[in-house]
């Protein structure tokens, strides 16, 4: 099969960048999208041009490295699928394919399709952890957890941190990522201790990183390669509200009678 591919080319962080078009022929429908990109790069290298830089690692849909907006959708047209698990058979022969990097001020383009996602790392550093000492390996059933809650926490934990939610959100908000990373700890007994501080610290960090605010479009859920639900955003909203409005500030203060 053949396609016409339009790719964002930008040589470094300060370059203005532009869309460039290439014709590719002799593709197999069984090629993955990234293999097609490899083929494009073979061709460009053969012509003495710079290959297209793009992030990839495991190529089996679990690492969260690949990051392309394909025809206006994060990770392309197939729902709950990362770019690396997208195949050329999902496109028509002769199709025009637009490939762009994640677009967000907090995800600056490093080169071509590679963006700097370290803002996500800083959100995790702000509170996406449990600081209880884990001690020696405990007896597995020593802390009872309701299976439904454990499964829901696992749903949140299936976030691979790829950033598709930010790329898909009309406002460039990172709420789905922050909510998932806050919920997969905050739903479990081990994560209760810091639950409200975690919600507040992670949201405050997310906002200071310059992500937009959530407008409840649910576009993130629709384009998330793991299909993570905006129910976690509602949960984060509730936790944040409780952390800000209800949790005591002066826990140990003295009081006077009147």
């Amino acid at each position: 099969m053949r396609i016409k591919i339009h790719v964002w080319r930008q040589s470094n962080r300060t370059d203005r960048g532009e869309m460039k078009s290439y014709d590719l022929e002799g593709l197999s429908p069984d090629m993955s999208f990234l293999e097609m990109m490899d083929q494009l790069n073979e061709k460009l290298t053969g012509n003495g041009e710079e290959p297209v830089a793009f992030d990839h690692d495991c190529r089996e849909g679990v690492c969260g490295s690949c990051s392309m907006v394909i025809n206006g959708e994060a990770h392309g047209p197939k729902s709950e699928t990362t770019t690396c698990q997208l195949y050329m058979r999902h496109f028509e022969d002769g199709a025009e394919v637009f490939v762009e990097p994640w677009r967000a001020r907090s995800f600056p383009v490093v080169r071509d399709l590679v963006v700097d996602r370290s803002a996500f790392d800083r959100i995790i550093q702000a509170g996406g952890f449990v600081s209880n000492h884990s001690g020696p390996k405990p007896e597995p059933n020593s802390i009872p957890i309701e299976p439904g809650i454990a499964e829901t926490a696992l749903d949140a934990a299936s976030c691979i941190g790829c950033g598709a939610c930010v790329a898909a959100c009309p406002n460039g908000s990172a709420m789905l990522f922050t909510a998932a990373k806050s919920a997969h700890l905050g739903m479990l007994p081990q994560g209760q201790t810091e639950r409200f501080d975690r919600a507040k610290d992670m949201v405050d960090k997310m906002e200071s990183e310059g992500f937009g605010s959530c407008r409840n479009y649910a576009e993130c859920e629709a384009q998330c390669p793991k299909g993570i639900s905006i129910a976690f955003i509602g949960r984060l909203n509730a936790d944040y509200l409780k952390a800000t409005m209800i949790e005591p500030i002066d826990r140990r203060g003295k009081m006077h009678a009147q």
Partner: peptide
């Protein structure tokens, strides 16, 4: 909020497709 969200994406997409919004 709208002004802040507009700043969050200074460069837009060439192609945009909405699945849910």
């Amino acid at each position: 909020l709208a002004m802040q969200s507009a700043e969050a994406r200074p460069i837009g997409y060439v192609k945009t497709k909405r699945k849910m919004a």
